[in-house]
Design a protein around this nucleic acid. Sequence first.
DNA 1: GTTGGCAGACCCCTCGATCGAGTGCCAACG
DNA 2: CGTTGGCACTCGATCGAGGGGTCTGCCAAC
Lengths: 366, 366
Amino acid sequence: MADQRGARDAAADEPLRLPEDLDERKARVLRTIVAEYVANGQPVGSSRVVQTAGLDVSSATVRNEMAALEERGYIDQPHTSAGRIPTDKGYRAFVDLLEVGGLDTQRAELIDELLGSAHDAEELMSTASAVLSQLTRLVAMVVAPTMDEARCKLVELVGLGTTTALLLLVDDTGRVVRRSVDIETPVTDGDLGRVRTVLAEQLIGRRMGDVHETVDGLVDEAPSELRPTLQAVRSATSEDLSVDLVRRVFVGGQAALAGDESLERNALGQVLGLIEERATLARVLDDTAADGADSLPHARIGAEHDVEELKTTSLVSQRYQVVRAGSLGVLGPTRMDYGAALSTVRAVSEALERTLADLRGPDQKN
Amino acid sequence: MADQRGARDAAADEPLRLPEDLDERKARVLRTIVAEYVANGQPVGSSRVVQTAGLDVSSATVRNEMAALEERGYIDQPHTSAGRIPTDKGYRAFVDLLEVGGLDTQRAELIDELLGSAHDAEELMSTASAVLSQLTRLVAMVVAPTMDEARCKLVELVGLGTTTALLLLVDDTGRVVRRSVDIETPVTDGDLGRVRTVLAEQLIGRRMGDVHETVDGLVDEAPSELRPTLQAVRSATSEDLSVDLVRRVFVGGQAALAGDESLERNALGQVLGLIEERATLARVLDDTAADGADSLPHARIGAEHDVEELKTTSLVSQRYQVVRAGSLGVLGPTRMDYGAALSTVRAVSEALERTLADLRGPDQKN
DNA sequence: GTTGGCAGACCCCTCGATCGAGTGCCAACG
DNA sequence: CGTTGGCACTCGATCGAGGGGTCTGCCAAC
């Protein structure tokens, strides 16, 4: 397992702690190689390192350093007479040494402006993924927060047929959960209305996470004619309410994947396939974010992924909203601009937190 | 403009009408070339045509026919000493001569079974796109029907802050429209409740397409304290209700695009980009389906598209539900198996219609 | 109209040679 | 001992030539 520390915060002023097997100069060489390779996509040779790193030594010296770096697994050589390419371990070390800077004010303002124009949580997250993908030119993903902690604001039960109904729950940020209810025996509109009233009385104001349990408690007390309906509602709410409809994943900029040369066509297909499996995708984003410190983005690089399809890609992900956590991030080839990715994810994440708070904050009366 | 007749129905028993510039044998040669090329991806030569078409003439004769076909623009030669490849016009002629057969019972049953397991319209369409993409190994898309003709079944107005509320409309198939309402001046819960009552009285049972107009009519009659809220509702419903949230496009199997060699990497990126623009996508599907006869799928091939990004792809699309029409289809490289695509789209479309009818049919009481 | 035959075009693969980038090693130097 | 310049070496990339194979277009004959 690779080092799982999160990216460093630029604010924390402790000196950069180098890995044991890297001295100052080796680290600098490694940094240069990663930066150059990310920028140009070409293996980088010793002379180029000397040039761009502005080191005051000869290329022969750098060659020695590079040999050491290769031996320790930080870089690799496609073939004997080629320059070096970072390994996953090399990227990892690079990222660990990286200071996550802030974004320039222009971009930061752009983010705030765009996110601020959203009317509700859903639109907000959709915008966030669009902004994130455009700024990074990577695939951007935003996982909606769980709604367990949110309060139930509205309950509706609409009959669609004599044995089917639609259950609607709205939370205090305006998110809507929509569940089909299949009732065993036909039920009249009147009974449906009565169930609706009971549900509204009991559920409104309660935590969304407690809905199922509450409904469960109602089934036994209820008069027998309402029981089949309540049982149906119980089973309709048994699955985590956040799944599927609410814990949606907003994906933007998939096309960017195709534009990247460094991703094999085959790998591309696999990644696209994975992106369609929203449940796995949400898990991967959440997990990756959880590996990092709170309010700092964290990267998973290449082989660090536990999902086979992502082994040639890197994911930078961060949690937002500590109370009811969602996560967001960008996905791209391991050869990505980690500096930009990390700081952009961080900036958008923070902007999203702020805007989300605004949305239910200032003019909230209850 | 290419020929815009829809695909032929196998049931219609009129003789196949050949294009003027194709006699029986030329058509047969063309058919063989398309079939072979679709199957193998290799340019097909005269001798191969003789073999697989089982023609009782020599390859020289076929060469003459092929020269004629090339002159008329049906086929093309990548280079002098290569076999022939169909042009878009060639594919078009091929498709026009194609009889849209039924699917084998095994597949047909599979489709019915899978679609039948869906609980509501949304799940149904999502399943349909998954089924369609798996059967064809192409990108499948299902555009939800417009809801103009559907009846309003429920109206709710939930306050989220003193100046923001959430408007919920549910139609008689259980689809939910969700609109943010920004009110000019703060409004009390009581007033909000009264507006809700007014809206419910006036809207329930009405066509969803008439909602905006109805609300518009209410604004002037309403007491002044309700007016800001009604105005806000009016502007929230001004946009077509079907757009965005309801007229969703369910896409499945994008990964298939990456797997196909015949699509340039560049083109792939463009297609992926277009797929993310759901509004355009819905329009293209609708338009393509509209070009064909009702209850028959229609193909748009390569250059027939008016969208630049799709010029190297073909789309097979069909309308379902004539009253409140949606459309569905598959997208892939022009070199696709049109026979399979056409019959599968047709089969899924019909199954979707049936299931959608069932969903609101048998046990519907109002 | 159809056919066999044939020359020609041209892709594809391989082979060899050359070029150049970049390396590893080594002896010398401070 | 770290650093350096020098040098031989490796190996991909590029180029051109040549052979094999495929498929065509044309033509004369049937």
